[in-house]
Amino acid sequence: MTIVHDLAHARAGDKGNTSNIVVVAYDTAGWHRLQRDLTAERVAAAFAPVGAGPVMRYELPRLSALNFVIENALGGGVSRSLSIDPHGKALSALMLTIDMPNPE
């Protein structure tokens, strides 16, 4: 079983109640798998249990990177959130746990 952590690294940032998580592939092969299989739908499914979504995905092929913009991910926003991590810094680690389908 491959997870995102095997292929890429990630960083989370916050704006209001929206988290953005950049996922950067370690190499070209990993980039092609991420580009094909780490869809907005797959990410949305992983973040649904924390009440987050919808999810937008942006591709940056020159940097082998995907940028995910995840709405409603920060418990109402940094200033009002009851979360122990109001900025959602740790959400990058949740992204890295996502299972990837096997390559064909």
């Binding site: 953005n20 937008m56 940056l60």
Partner: peptide, 26 residues
């Protein structure tokens, strides 16, 4: 790369008071 996309939503339209920055060709 991690920092370039930090707190960015649409990388083609990162709005500042000075310009609308397009990062997609970087």
């Amino acid at each position: 790369t991690e920092q370039l996309l930090y707190e960015v939503h649409d990388p083609a339209r990162y709005i500042t008071p000075d310009c609308t920055l397009d990062m997609t060709g970087i």
